[in-house]
């Protein structure tokens, strides 16, 4: 028997197919874009990789902002719950999850048994999210995937005082005009995101569950940006756990939940 987890995010859509034993058979990530049918497209890619057909899938759990609109889902579960399940599966010692996605960033605190104890999401604006970095990459005319490596080349990060995407854009333009090296600007942007997300983490930290190496996991597409990860690690004081496929933990969690229903 097989199950699928579908995570329709604001920027990318993800699918994970598992066997009933929990083995990962395939996964896929595509841009969400506009229009309908993205859920079917990402599932089709994952099915092809797993050499399966859709009628062999016994249960589908949908998550992410687009979860409501997945036509073939058997159940919808929020991304908070799915990330918690997916990350806990990969890192059994996890207590804090920092997820930086395209549209929002989240912090999830887990209890001893992996239950969601509390969570926080950023306010409804792009500050501290992947969208912020995507817009800035456009302004700087560099690839989104280059933001991490380029920032590591900076001698020191430029000061970006605003994490409001609109105001930061004009600030970046000013820095360019001043002749600030691009890699310094990027390092400043990554640092700004890290500071914003760290502040979110602080709102959910409790004295009973201290931050320690091995219990803080960074997920979401922005986890692939080594510059943001390093800046966050600097704030927190130790290395973060980052999954090999940090974008997929929501879909993985959804698929693991699906197993419970077959």
């Amino acid at each position: 028997m097989y199950v699928a987890g579908i995570d329709i995010g604001s920027m990318t859509s993800k699918a994970v197919i598992l066997s009933s034993a929990g083995d990962v058979l395939s996964h896929a990530v595509i841009l969400t874009g506009t229009g309908s049918g993205v859920a079917q497209k990402v599932l089709d890619i994952a099915l092809e990789k797993a050499k399966l057909t859709q009628d062999q899938i016994n249960y589908v759990v949908a998550t992410g902002y687009g979860r409501v609109g997945v036509p073939f889902k058997d159940k919808q579960v929020t991304e908070i719950t799915c990330h918690a399940r997916g990350v806990r599966h990969l890192f059994p010692e996890v207590s804090y999850i920092i997820d930086i996605g395209g549209q929002d960033s989240k912090v999830i605190r887990l209890g001893l048994h992996g239950e969601v104890q509390d969570f926080a999401m950023n306010d409804k604006c792009a500050a501290g999210t992947g969208r912020f970095l995507a817009v800035m990459a456009g302004v700087l005319n560099v690839g989104l995937n280059d933001l991490g490596p380029l920032s590591l080349e900076a001698k020191e990060p430029a000061i970006i005082s605003s994490t409001c995407t609109v105001f930061a854009e004009s600030e970046v333009v000013s820095r360019i005009a001043e002749g600030t090296p691009v890699n310094s600007i990027i390092a400043g942007l990554n640092k700004a995101v890290a500071e914003r997300v760290y502040a979110l983490l602080r709102t959910k930290m409790v004295s009973q569950i201290k931050l320690k190496e091995g219990n803080v996991v960074l997920t979401g597409g922005v986890a692939r940006n080594i510059g943001v990860a390093k800046a966050l690690e600097e704030k927190i004081g130790f290395p973060l756990c980052i999954p090999d496929h940090p974008q997929l933990t929501g879909a993985l969690g959804a698929a693991l939940i699906a197993i419970d229903y077959i």
């Binding site: 902002y65 579960v77 929020t78 991304e79 908070i80 719950t81 918690a84 399940r85 806990r88 599966h89 549209q103 929002d104 048994h113 992996g114 239950e115 969601v116 104890q117 509390d118 969570f119 999401m121 409804k124 693991l256 939940i257 419970d260």
Partner: peptide
């Protein structure tokens, strides 16, 4: 986002067994 917050909260306090597996 508000919907996700409320839905997640209900899942959280509902003791959604799926979370812990």
């Amino acid at each position: 986002q508000a919907r996700t917050r409320i839905e997640s909260f209900l899942e959280m306090i509902g003791g959604n067994s799926s979370v812990t597996g």
